[in-house]
């Protein structure tokens, strides 16, 4: 089936097998290897991209169902040579080791910063909370990091959130 997506600002029209995930479309057909496959079941977050500005697990999205969507991957975060503040902060805070979860962490953090409202640890759901380390940790828990870089990931995001 033919579908058209905006990927990192560029229109892409692709003929896809309905079985193909958005993640496989990005990685195998569009050569955008930044989005990672860690589990293929929405359990690790390595595939996180922004779909119409909101973070989503691209492994659980069928490419056909994304027709007409605007996709931002980690390759689209920087402004030319100028890194996105999250990317720069991740480098400065050593917020990654192997780097495999990193694109998903970055896209997730970029989406998360645009998600006000309460989280599971917010004391009062009526009040939009400040992004304390505890709030960041809860909101970033959909992105597993087996190297255990969470402490640095949280400090990197906290710096950008300030």
């Amino acid at each position: 089936m033919d579908i058209t997506l905006q990927v990192n600002g560029l229109p892409r029209t692709v003929d896809v097998d309905p079985r193909m995930s958005l993640l496989d479309l990005l990685r195998e057909r569009l050569g955008l290897i930044g989005s990672k496959k860690g589990c293929d079941h929405g359990q690790c977050g390595a595939c996180t991209v922004l779909v119409d500005g909101r973070r989503a697990n691209s492994c659980l999205a069928l490419a056909v169902a994304m027709d007409g969507s605007e996709i931002t991957t980690v390759e689209g975060l920087a402004n030319g040579d100028e890194l996105h503040p999250l990317q720069a902060a991740f480098i400065e805070h050593d917020a990654f080791q192997c780097g495999y979860c990193t694109p998903g962490q970055l896209c997730s953090a970029a989406g998360m910063l645009g998600e006000p409202g309460p989280s599971a640890v917010t004391p009062d759901v009526l009040v939009d909370p400040d992004l304390t380390p505890e709030e960041i940790r809860e909101r970033m828990s959909g992105n597993l990091c087996r190297c255990g870089a969470y402490v640095n990931i949280v400090s990197a995001i906290a710096e950008v959130a300030r």
Binding site: A56, N57, S108, G111, M112, S119, T122, V125, R139, N143
Partner: peptide, 28 residues
């Protein structure tokens, strides 16, 4: 979970939704 009416009138419902899955899964 982010809806003002839900948060005001049914906070328990917002809490239940926020307890589930991850931010990216809840977006989908």
């Amino acid at each position: 979970a982010a809806d003002p009416l839900i948060r005001r009138r049914y906070p328990m419902l917002a809490r239940a939704v926020l307890a589930g899955a991850s931010g990216q899964v809840r977006n989908m």
